[in-house]
Amino acid sequence: MTLTDVDPATPPVQRCGAAGGEIAYRRAGQGHPVLLLHSAGGANEWGPLQLGLAGVGDLVAPDHPGFGLSDDLPELHTVDDLVYHYLDLLDGLGLAQVDVVGVSFGGWVAAELAMHSPERVRRLVLGAAIGLRIPEAPIADLFLMNPPQLMRALFHDEALVTAALSAEPTTDQILATYRDLGALARFGWHPFLNDPKLERRLHRITAPTLVLAAGEDRLVPREHAQRFAERIPDARLVVVEDCGHALHGERPAEVTAAVVEHLGS
C-alpha cells in the first residue's frame, strides 16, 4: 500500500516491537481505550467500524502477527500465544484496562484474553466469534473453499459477493490473502478453529459482554454465539439480521451502532 491509497482520515501505521519482529497498528480517538482484534480477512482495515470506535474511545487496532502489515513472529503458534502477545502489547502501551472488540478469529482471541485476565477487560464484544468446539455444529471448512465459495460463505447479500468477485485480484493481493490465511492456519488448523478448553473457562469472564451473531452466517453456526452467550456470566446475544459472517463488512452501520452502544452503556 502506498500513501496515496490511504484515505486521509486513516491514521498512520505505527509499529511496535514484539518477540521476533514488529507488529503494525493504528491508533486514533480519545477516551477509554478500545482494543480491536480483527478477523482473518480484516487486517490493515480502516472503515466504518474503526471510525465509529475511534469516535467514542482511544482505538488501538493492531494486525495480528502474520497478518496484514505485521511481521510473522513465527514463534507464536497458538491462540494462547496470542493472548500473551496482546498482554505484552497492552503493557507496552501502558493500558491497564481496555474494552475489547473481537471479530470472528479476533473474537476467539478476545474471549481467551478476557478469561485469562478478566481484570484487563472493561467491556467485551464478540462478533461472529469462533473458538468453541461444538462437534454437532462445526464451523465450515473455509480452508477447503475456493475464492467464490469463500465469498458466498462470508456475505449473505449476493450483490456483495458479485462485487467482491468482480475485479481480478492482483498478484500482491493473492499473496497477501494467502499469507493472512496461512497465519490463520498456523493458529487454527488443528484443533480446527477451536480450543477444546475454551468453553469450560468462559465463566471467568467478568466484563459485560455483547455477543453478536450474524443472522445468515454460513461459516459459523448460530450455536456458537448461543453457547458464548450462555457460558459468559454477563452476556447478551444480539442477532444482526440479513447479514453474513462478514458482519461489519456486510452491515457496517448496524454493527458499529450495536458495538458503540455496548461500549458506552
Binding site: 480452508f143 475456493n146 498478484t171 499473496l175 494467502y178 490465511l181 496461512g182 497465519a183 492456519a185 498456523r186
Partner: peptide
Amino acid sequence: QGLEIVFPPGYMSPAAMKGLLK
C-alpha cells in the same frame, strides 16, 4: 484437485507461491 486442496494456506512459502503464480 483445486488449488485449495493442493496448496492450503501456509503450505507454501511466499517465495514459492510467488513462483507458482509467475
